[in-house]
């Protein structure tokens, strides 16, 4: 136990470097430029503003802010914006709108598309292709489809990996402590659904806590503490306010 504690303390002390565009991160032919970096002669130069992540020979930049850029395989939450003859046009909080074809729907569709999914519905989808002509989505797959009830909250899409945690540890912890069902889209839209509104609000506050405290190592422990101490008082206040 003691050694574990020491390790986490050491991790907290280790601050990762921040690079600004045009700044040389490392120099040497041994390194490989990854996301957000480029090679300029001997040097690896930052292309963006972000945290430097060195894993072995690969240099990567983890962006701290910015809009969500869709990638193949991402699970995102979107809102239906418009309906055409061939499918649904969706807003996925990205610079481009996305398209969900009728053929990518697991059910047999007959007649008016409006009867299945209407404008304003929230769906969780997977990005199947990102082309110049647009983004294509699918809802074939486990856990994909229409999200009914619950609340929606938006977070910075760059913090999504922290909210999910290593192998889903963080989101699992929040789910267990609030008894809520949570879907986190890679685009920063989070859907929370529980039996009681209090639970949903508690889950949202927990997520906001994680987003605010990101880039601290050993965050899972902190969230555990947060669940033990803080929330009860807050929930009481919230319900009072509603009355």
């Amino acid at each position: 136990m003691i050694s574990e504690k020491k390790q986490t303390e050491e991790k907290e002390k280790k601050v990762r470097e921040i690079a600004v565009p045009g700044e040389t991160i490392v120099s040497g032919k041994d390194y490989l430029p990854g996301d957000g970096t480029r090679r300029e002669g001997e040097n690896i130069v930052a292309n963006k503003f972000g945290l430097v992540d060195i894993s072995g020979r690969l240099i990567k930049l983890i962006p701290l802010s910015g809009v969500y850029m869709p990638r193949m395989g991402n699970v995102v939450i979107g809102r239906i914006e418009n309906i055409t003859f061939k499918g649904w046009i969706m807003d996925i909080n990205a610079p481009y709108s996305a398209f969900l074809q009728v053929a990518e729907c697991p059910r047999f569709i007959k007649g008016d598309l409006k009867d299945y999914y209407n404008i304003g519905d929230m769906l969780s989808c997977e990005v199947i292709s990102v082309k110049n002509s647009g983004i294509d989505l699918t809802i074939k797959g486990r856990g994909l489809g229409k999200l009914e009830g619950g609340i929606i909250t938006k977070i910075n899409s760059n913090k999504v990996p922290r909210v999910i945690g290593r192998e889903g540890s963080m989101i699992k912890l929040i789910k267990e402590n609030t008894k809520c069902n949570i879907v986190v889209g890679q685009n920063g839209i989070v859907w929370i659904s529980g039996d009681k509104v209090e639970d949903e609000i508690k889950a949202r506050e927990a997520i906001e806590f994680v987003v605010g405290k990101s880039f601290i190592d050993g965050l899972t422990e902190k969230v555990k503490e947060w669940f033990e101490n803080k929330p009860l008082k807050k929930i009481v206040k919230k319900t009072e306010g509603k009355k």
């Binding site: 600004v20 565009p21 957000g36 503003f49 972000g50 802010s65 910015g66 760059n158």
Partner: peptide, 9 residues
């Protein structure tokens, strides 16, 4: 830079 836009410098 803060908007996360890729820039050369």
């Amino acid at each position: 830079a803060q908007a996360g836009i890729s820039m050369k410098e």
